[in-house]
Simulated assay, not measured.
Amino acid sequence: MSEAQKASLELDRAALGRELEGAIDGFRGLETITKFKGGQSNPTYLLEAASGRYVLRSKPPGTLLKSAHQVDREYRVMKALKGTGVPVPEMLYLSPEDSSIGRMFFVMSHIDGRIFWDPAVPEVSVDERRAIYDNMNRVLARLHDIDPVSVGLSDYGKPGNYFTRQIDRWSKQYRASETVKLADVDWLIDWLEQNQPADDGAVSLVHGDFRLDNMMFSRDGTEILALLDWELSTLGHPLADLAYQCMQWRLPHASGFRGLGGMDRAALGIPSEQDYVRDWCERRGLEGVDNWVFCLAFSFFRLAAIIQGIVKRIADGNASDPERGAQLVAAVPLLARMARNLIEKGE
């Protein structure tokens, strides 16, 4: 990371402290600000103050793509979900755009837990690993069972066919951040546009980035204390979340993706993709899923578009973690090729 990039992510402790003391009950004496490692989108910081620990999440500096980095949406959805059975931190403050750090941010409670970065979860036993995956499945099903109207989120997404909207959105986002022409991406966009399933009317809250390392687990157990990183959440089709998580079963493990591809999942106590889908369906009272290949292919494309945005931000000097992001430059063609192979094989 260049000195200019580092400087753009540094926060003015004195100014921020004054703002938070006037905005959050009991907040006092901001002492240190430490940026968390990792994360490619919205930079996140640990705040240590005389009154305790807090977490701040902000928009990145620089020029941003339209509709990206909406931390106010993250704040809103987590505030609405408190007490619903979907574990989230307590939301404490949402700043205006002209905040003390020069961009919008929110502050939430700090949760003392652990994050598992490797989906094989090598640091736990087989029984614990099995429980971790079952708890993820349970939380995902619970999220999709929540009535958005009942939590004040009836307007959290646009009406109409979710996949139609999302293909249009991510195609535009991809084109806006495109750095090289990739034939497989062009082919995939055309296929998705021409093979959209009919709208079945299913609508739920969708997280948008539901995966193991966006969850905080208890220090000495398998309980999920918080589901984090809601930047991509909206109202949409619940199969989008399920397929997005199930991509991890297919992605290679020895890569920046840290997928489960090629691993002996049965020996690890990790359910098969089919069993994971079955458990989610049983929890939601469904008989099965339709258009699974389409849902997976869409998820591969959507992830490719997200990563392409990171590649563009690296080029522009605005990436939250440029060193990590640089490792993902090769990911976009890999994802497009995997999606095309999936479609052509039909499984």
Rank of each mutant, 00 (worst) to 15 (best):
C295Q: 07
M136P: 07
G52Y: 00
M78D: 05
A226R: 02
D279P: 06
A141F: 14
D118P: 00
S100N: 08
D127I: 10
I306T: 12
R103Q: 05
L239H: 14
P148Q: 06
G236Q: 04
E123S: 12
A7S: 11
V151S: 10
P122G: 10
L268P: 00
G62D: 02
E223A: 15
V121G: 08
A14C: 06
R57A: 03
A326I: 04
C246K: 04
P197K: 10
L205Y: 03
P271C: 01
A15R: 07
E282W: 05
D264G: 03
E31D: 14
L16F: 07
Y54W: 03
Q173T: 02
F105V: 00
R302N: 04
P252Y: 12
V124D: 09
G22A: 14
T222G: 13
D316N: 07
A331G: 11
K35F: 08
A336H: 02
I132T: 01
D264Y: 10
T34R: 15
P87D: 13
V107K: 05
F163A: 11
F300I: 04
S95H: 07
S41A: 14
A339P: 11
H69M: 01
R313Q: 11
I306K: 07
I146S: 11
R165A: 14
E3K: 14
D190F: 02
Q173R: 06
E90L: 09
E90H: 10
I115G: 02
E10M: 10
I314A: 05
L334D: 13
Q196L: 15
L242R: 04
I111E: 11
V121K: 06
Y162T: 12
A202G: 12
D98V: 00
A254W: 04
F257L: 02
Y45S: 00
Y45K: 07
L143Y: 15
P159H: 02
V71F: 01
R76N: 03
G346Q: 14
D168W: 05
R337K: 13
R284S: 07
V121L: 12
D134G: 15
A50E: 15
D220W: 09
T63L: 08
I343R: 11
R219Y: 03
P238A: 00
H237G: 12
A14T: 15
V289S: 13
M108K: 13
A23T: 09
D72W: 04
R175A: 12
L268D: 08
L64F: 08
F257D: 00
S272V: 12
E3N: 11
I307C: 04
R18P: 00
D279I: 05
H144S: 02
M108R: 14
G29R: 01
A183R: 04
V203A: 14
L251F: 13
S51M: 08
I189M: 06
D209Q: 05
I146F: 13
C295T: 06
K6L: 13
A243Y: 05
A183W: 04
L16I: 08
M78S: 06
R28P: 03
W280C: 12
D200R: 09
